[in-house]
Amino acid sequence: MKWSEVCIHTTNEAIEPISNILHESGASGLVIEDPLDLVKQHDNKFGEIYELDSSEYPEEGVYIKAYLPMNSFLSETVEQIKLTINSLKLYDIDIGNNHVSLSEIDEEEWATAWKKYYKPVKISKRITITPTWEDYSPVSSDEIIIELDPGMAFGTGTHPTTVLSVQALEQYLNKDDLVIDVGSGSGVLSIASVLLGAQEVHAYDLDDVAVESTRVNANLNKLGNQIIAKQNNLLDQVNLKANIIVSNILAEIIVQFVGDAWDNLEQNGLFITSGIILNKKQLVKDKLEQQGFKIIQVNEMEEWISIVAKKVL
């Protein structure tokens, strides 16, 4: 089978929403080429990626590459992708250059080429994420290994927003906590929660492909019985009392369900939010405080923000 590689030249801010658009359009094997990965200095080595080729990266902005089967619907699919990306401007999201290009690629090349981007990555003091095809041995007795199959490419744990989320979970999660993961994607935050001691995680995502990806990765890590993945729009109709709600989505989406998060938390429960670009920090903080949350921690990594808020009556 022939595949078409769709390459979108855009901004770091637009990575998450454009990735979702591509997944919803049936794309597979997502790759993000960010030139900042070539020069960034990691103070604590968390999230560091190695073996990168500078010739494959843009001088500015980022490349998002995904793969679509070459069929009679390809041109219509690409046009719909372009229209949906343009609509992100309505949400005040900078889409930058927004140049979209297509190139043909053989199935065998597609099936293996993108794997070179995924290596074992230590993302917190205790947690290392490794793709299933990489051999990796723990370097310390308390190291936690998460195996992921990023074939559906809903996040591999290396993006700053995921790193910030995992670090917050590692700091605040207590043994036997009940956790809700809103916008579960690949399931990395759900898996991390259980491995850090959560009794059970309820994982929700609107995209049924993401829900299946969460289930697949939960089973890869032998946690299928503790991670309950369901298709759902944010926290609509959810009625639980969690100790922690974690959500790594866009700021514009987070503010839509702050009230539902409050209703689904125990007293003194924590709402861990990430996926927030720096210039949207105040938007989320204001919404959380209006609801009654007390902001207890704000962390920053490479222009991205995570906020930990406590439900205090």
Rank of each mutant, 00 (worst) to 15 (best):
E143C: 07
I228N: 14
G26Y: 11
A251H: 08
N279W: 09
I32G: 10
G269S: 14
V308G: 02
H9F: 04
G187M: 01
L90I: 08
L169S: 09
V31K: 05
L68H: 08
I18D: 07
N299S: 13
I305C: 06
L164A: 05
I21V: 10
P17L: 04
K287F: 01
K119E: 15
V39K: 06
D53Y: 14
S140H: 05
L38M: 05
N268L: 09
I15K: 06
L196M: 09
Y57N: 09
V188F: 05
V258A: 10
I145H: 04
L196S: 06
N20Q: 10
G61H: 01
T161L: 00
V298P: 00
D149I: 01
V194Y: 06
R126K: 15
S124L: 12
D94E: 12
I123F: 00
L164D: 02
L196V: 08
K175I: 08
G155C: 06
K222I: 07
P69M: 13
E300R: 05
G29Q: 02
N217D: 03
I129W: 02
G47M: 06
I295M: 06
L234G: 03
L313D: 08
D205G: 05
S193A: 13
K230Q: 15
N217L: 01
S140R: 12
G26K: 12
L52W: 09
L265F: 12
K89W: 01
V298R: 04
G187W: 02
E302V: 02
K82T: 11
T158M: 11
S247Y: 11
E24M: 13
L189M: 10
S101Q: 12
A192I: 03
P160R: 00
E300G: 02
S55D: 15
Q171R: 14
S184P: 00
G183E: 03
E48T: 01
V194D: 10
E33R: 14
E143W: 05
N268T: 06
K82F: 04
E266K: 14
H9N: 14
T112I: 13
S103F: 05
L169V: 12
I49Y: 06
I272M: 15
A153E: 03
G61F: 01
N217T: 07
V308I: 12
K125R: 14
A27P: 01
T156L: 01
Q297G: 02
A251L: 09
V6W: 03
K82Y: 05
L283R: 07
Y91V: 01
L88C: 08
